[in-house]
Amino acid sequence: MDNPYQNPDLEVRNPFADSVVPEPQSPNTPTAAKPNNKNFSIPKDPKIKILIILVVIIAVLSVLSFIITIFRKSQLKPVIVEPTPIIETTPVPTETPALTMPAEINAKFEKIDQNTRTNIQFDPPQIDPDIGL
């Protein structure tokens, strides 16, 4: 329902204006957000929430890295390179321990190993059979 017009130049109030009862504002009516720095509220949009969380994490990490960098710089000192120490102990032989077996069997094993290591390599001559053509 429209409000009856009240002419401002007239002293007489519009009689119809008094009879108009202002409608109560429903709680669901959107109202413009008033800027209020003291009562900051987190936005309800989940995307913005995630964005804010990420920004906060990045900021925290940046601050931490900055602090750690400053701390490490303060710890750096000139390193004196020491010469490699010379081992004076006798080196331990790396040979595999001798197998425990009868001597005659060991001799046969050596013969077999020698045969398996033998590689026959006696390639025929590489020639040109077309000599003379």
């Binding site: 009868p102 005659e104 069997i105 046969k108 094993f109 013969k111 077999i112 045969n115 398996t116 033998t118 026959i120 006696f122």
Partner: peptide, 28 residues
Amino acid sequence: LVQHEVNLRQLTLENIQSLGMDIKTNPQ
């Protein structure tokens, strides 16, 4: 050349089989 190497491997196999028999009969 192939026959020569076959002979060598065959000889080795015979040596191994002989050794296997020795191992079977060795009292130790």
